[in-house]
Write a protein that binds this DNA or RNA. Structure first.
Length: 360
DNA sequence: CATACGTGGCT
DNA sequence: TAGCCAAGTAT
């Protein structure tokens, strides 16, 4: 069967020139694979450049502070990737003497590395014959083989993995894996695949049976739930300097490890947010101390399975009793050194335009 | 096995 | 436009 020979030939002729394809450094390949989890090349590219510049090797990353790594990752999403990458860098420093592990098992045991990423690093960096099964591969193979079982079920993934374990090029498994993914990214796309120029079209079951639009099959997704976030940007002047208040997000929830302004979360829209804030933070600020107050428009922040409806309350204050607040006080000038989710970062840019000249 | 986790581009 | 989905992982 020369199906995959055509694929490899196509890959060498058509592959994109990407920075992580110009190195054999497992560290850099690892960083690229973490960034590319659920993320398009176009979106991840600038982050890859930034991270490699800032942390050129495992040691540099291992010695970084979590806040700094998260700031570097700010805007990319799925922030546990950044936290786990840092944990794994430290693990490599401490338990592998700073040397990136070279076998599948040790790679797979690192935090943030699952079946896909372990196979990707093992094959690309160390030439080990582990097939990758990612979204591209599931789409390409299910079409090629005319698989109509849902590709998001474990059994279908296992079936495709077993199939590829037989087919994988043992000499150049990294190229084999990347060729399959590259085909999925450039030709065998989810919508409007370019079957006419596909190097596998002769052998493609879905193509020949007119089922390209029906395959792959996926089980249904659930509806979006709405969360309401009411933020309070509190500004206080002391000794001719402006301060605000922040909290670090913890717990198993969205944006863990990032920072936020004092927040009230509700399941429905708050009618009197300021009142609610006073009653929840007794002694922190007093209504009499408010010099100026502004309420932003409602901002809808759309996530895959969530809609966050957020609003920012800006309060300019005479004074505040920080002992009654659980977060911490920040010099306004240092605000932008903290990692924030996109929602906050976006609003902050509007905020600066609109208000900064009033008090800075 | 289902669900949570971000963001942005495309249809 | 609302929905889909992108080089997945952890729980």
């Amino acid at each position: 069967m020369d199906v995959f020979k055509n694929l490899i030939r196509w890959y060498h002729k058509n592959k994109r020139d990407l920075p992580w394809r110009r190195t054999s450094d497992p560290y850099k390949i690892w960083v690229s694979e973490i960034i590319l989890q659920q993320t398009r090349v176009d979106q991840g590219m600038e982050y890859y450049i930034r991270i490699i510049n800032r942390y050129p090797d495992v040691n540099a990353l291992a010695n970084a502070a979590e806040d700094e790594v998260l700031k570097t990752w700010q805007g990319l999403g799925y922030y546990s990737r950044a936290r786990n990458m840092l944990l794994s860098a430290r693990e490599i420093e401490n338990k592998h003497s700073g040397h990136f592990p070279e076998n599948y098992c040790d790679i797979r045991n690192l935090k943030g590395i699952g079946d896909y990423t372990a196979a990707a690093i093992a094959s690309i960096a160390f030439n080990l014959p582990y097939p990758v099964v990612d979204g591209n591969v599931l789409r390409v193979i299910s079409r090629l083989e005319g698989i109509t079982d849902p590709i998001d079920s474990a059994s279908t993934k296992k079936y495709i993995l077993n199939l590829l374990e037989e087919k994988i090029d043992k000499k150049l498994p990294g190229d084999f894996n990347q060729a399959l993914m590259e085909l999925g990214a450039l030709i065998c796309t989810p919508s409007n695949p370019r079957c006419i120029i596909c190097p596998l079209n002769v052998h493609c079951n879905a193509y020949h049976t007119g089922r390209i639009k029906q395959i792959p099959v996926k089980t249904k997704k659930q509806a979006k739930k709405i969360r309401y976030f009411e933020y309070f940007i509190i500004l206080v002047r002391e000794d001719n300097k402006w301060f605000t208040f922040l909290e670090k997000r913890s717990g198993e929830d969205i944006w863990k490890g990032l920072y936020q302004f004092p927040l009230i979360e509700t399941k429905s829209l708050l009618q009197n947010p300021i009142e609610e804030f006073f009653s929840r933070n007794k002694g922190f600020i007093r209504p009499d101390d408010i010099l100026e107050q502004y309420t932003s428009k409602m901002i809808s922040h759309i996530l895959t399975h969530r809609i966050i409806k957020a609003r920012f309350q800006m309060l300019l204050l005479e004074s505040a009793d920080e002992e009654f607040y659980e977060g911490f006080k920040v010099d306004y000038k240092k605000l932008f050194s903290y990692p924030f989710p996109r929602l906050t970062d976006r609003y902050l840019k509007v905020f600066v335009e609109k208000f900064e000249k009033k008090f800075v």
